[in-house]
Design a protein around this nucleic acid. Sequence first.
RNA 1: GGGCACAUAGCUCAGAGGUAGAGCACUACGUUGACAUCGUAGUGGUCGUAGGUUCGAUCCCUGCUGUGCCCACCA
Length: 882
Amino acid sequence: MLDKIFDAKSFEGNFSFDIEASTRVPGAEPFMVLLPPPNITGNLHIGHALCYTLQDIVARYKRLKGYDVLFQPGVDHAGIVTQLLVEKQIYASGVERGTLTREKLLKEIWFWKENSSGTIVNQLRKLGISCDFSRQRFTLDEKSKKAVTKMFVNLHRNGLLYRGHRMVNWDPLIGSAISDLEVVEKEVDGHLWHIKYELEDGKDYIVVATTRPETIFGDVAVAVNPKDSRYKKFVGKNVRIPLVDRLIPVIEDSYADPEKGTGAVKITPAHDFNDYEVGLRNKLPIIDIFNDKAELNKEVPEMFQGMDRFEARNKVVDLLEKKEVLLKTENIKQTLPFGDRSGVVLEPRVTYQWFVNAEKLARPAIRAVKEGKIRFVPKHWENLYFEWLENIRPWCVSRQIWWGHRIPAWYGPDGQVFVAESESDAKQQALKFYGKHDVKLVQDEDVLDTWFSSGMWPFVTLDWPENSEDLHRFYSNMIVVTGFDIIFFWVARMIMMGIYAMKDIPFKDVYIHGLVRDKHGNKMSKSKGNVIDPLVLCDKYGADAVRYTLAYMSSPGRDIKMSDQVVETGRNFLTKLWNVVRFAQMNGCVYNEHFDPNEVTHPLNKWIIFEAKNTISAVEEAYKNYRFDDAARLIYQGVWNSLCDWYMEFVKPILQESALTDTIAEGYNLDQTLLKKDIRDTMAWVIVQLIRVLYPISPFISKKLSGELGATEVVWPNFDNIRLDFADSIKQVQLLKEIITSVRSLKQSFRMPPSEKFNAVLEGNTVEASSFIETYSKIIEKMAGVTFVNNIGMSLPIVLSGAILRVEIDRKIDVQKEIANFKKEVENCIKMRDAAMFRLNNEAFRNKATEEVIAEHNTRVEVLSEKISKTEYIIRSLEAMQ
RNA sequence: GGGCACAUAGCUCAGAGGUAGAGCACUACGUUGACAUCGUAGUGGUCGUAGGUUCGAUCCCUGCUGUGCCCACCA
């Protein structure tokens, strides 16, 4: 027997899903769920909880449906994030900056990784995520290293990966190049300084406006628009850079916009993407004035050397002012690029980097989605995917950090590059190239962008480049569930790299979930202090309740506003379910696996089987379409509204009061014991079916409760063989509900306490109705709160389909008020009936509306008319009482 | 500047070309055995705005307003 109190903690910890997660079903259709690997630095946050819960629901649903499910877990090495974090810890422990070696850092990170990677696994288990942990992978493990190296070499061999000297986004804090995607634009307050550049002869000057006066040391020209007549006279002449007196030419270039600034723009090819292009076009030199920390280097006057860029800016402005060449300072809003990890302003910088020709890889990736081979859910995210891939630029994959996949490239003494899968291969190449042994090769110091290895996740986890059986079996039969924010970072790259390496799409469906926000709709952040910890929620309400709530709230394309209150709704539902089983147990219901619904005879039992059947087929449809919200809602309604509110209340008196049972059993020519058994079997069976379809969403309680009822196995319910005719049962239960609801409603409007009972007489209009009344009168008495008597005094009729219920009324009620209420109801009905009739009288409607619609309108008019006359009858009866 | 999404009850959100739904909140009544993490009955909405298509639009189309997001540019 279950405890009176539902406490998730009392049983959730007792369940492990390791066995089902690692069980293979050899002959079955393969299906893989690819868990987006969390960063080793990360704790499980609520966003993970959502993401992983949804895919766990998919995995569990597929398992129930008999698929061979591989739910692949793993952890991402998260290059920059991890290195920054561990460096910070190392420096905090007293190690001096600059003394840290590559070996020491890597050792520390590995040590740190070994100690922290278990945390996430435990957290996932607590949440009930049924990954196959025996296959846990790491993006930097040996297999991954081999695969990544192979991929790099292949791409290079095919000319899709190359080394280039180009302008990239440089993060001065990390001291590394980063990709375009890692740049976040932010609007900040800035200034526009107008600076006077004198002509060589000192007789005239030109004014340039800049937001970055410190870069004047890197200026190589001043550009004006060819169509700008104001500056025609300057073109071809030289101007003098203030503070350094270097001469630079005034050139014409259409990049200069006469509308912007002064129309004359200083050109600093080393420190601006546009200027870089202008420089290339006009064959201008490049003067880089920064080092890798964005401090000024030897190219600038001595007093500025080693100075930070912002400090230099102030200093330059000061000096310009003193020299009276600063003509104006405007306050402006400007948008600057920041590093998403470091948070510092980025510098464009020309360096040697490795690039992937993403444009070529993108083409088949675009096609795969255009042709519908890969489907985004919700579909509109495809737009975003196309938008990015169609305008994709070369992907800078090298990073000047230490934590990551070392780039498999070696350099000869003359700088000749050898890309190879191993150092010995590189040496072979060098031997061929130089024609001699013992050439000293040095491996590239850099590592790869973390997303390079993440992008290979769908096939790396299946042991590519080995030709494994799993690779054939599961690749392409996958689903990825993730957030929109990594469509570019991850999803697009997996598709590009997957198609390149495997000549086939990695997965068919990409489900994009929303963002979890706080209850006010704000993004969660540590600084705002509004972060909700899923593990705290699990402790408080149970993992099942958290999972249920996340599923319940996952409407496609919507963000989720999370709060304790909404989890309470989930928890309350599970409590209800708990009590359903408790009730079943108290009434001797035990799951019987040989129970055949087709042998059920009693209408109440037939009805609940019908309800369960409908609910479950709708739930299945919902799971199929990734409508986790619908699935959760449907089960909620099936359990609460059909099973608890009606069925259990109907059968309660039969099971618990033998006097009632006699009457009801007689009505059906049933043996009392048989009737009870029928009910117990049906109830246990229906509950188990409903609990089973809840299993994907809330697995712990599902297992717990089905076990309590004696159903050990969790399988998907099968209703295919049910041949019952439900029509009569549905009609009867509808009438029962109608009678009971009407009486209750009447009672409330009379302000009668539920304990007080109406005396009532139930008159059947027809023979069938009479027998119906005979059968159910005890249930009606109990549930509606009436006492059937032979004769009553002054009464109010409740006119039902096929019966009239007369309830005895004394004069204490406020008749006027009741009349007014009923009159209002009549008015409403008339309004609706007339609207329907108006349409039916409209010739255009009759000609163009479908037959079903017209039939439905006719029925509506009938039903409403009947209701109107019934209510008017009641009103007349009330008026007669006055 | 280009694009995407959203706008339905006090709140959070479902929904369908043909009578507007749920949960929470609120009101009233109710606790000796499934459940107060509950029950019963209620209150509450010209479905953002202006047009169009249609016999019929809250739903489809267009414009507008507001909100959120993505991309690009900025001397």
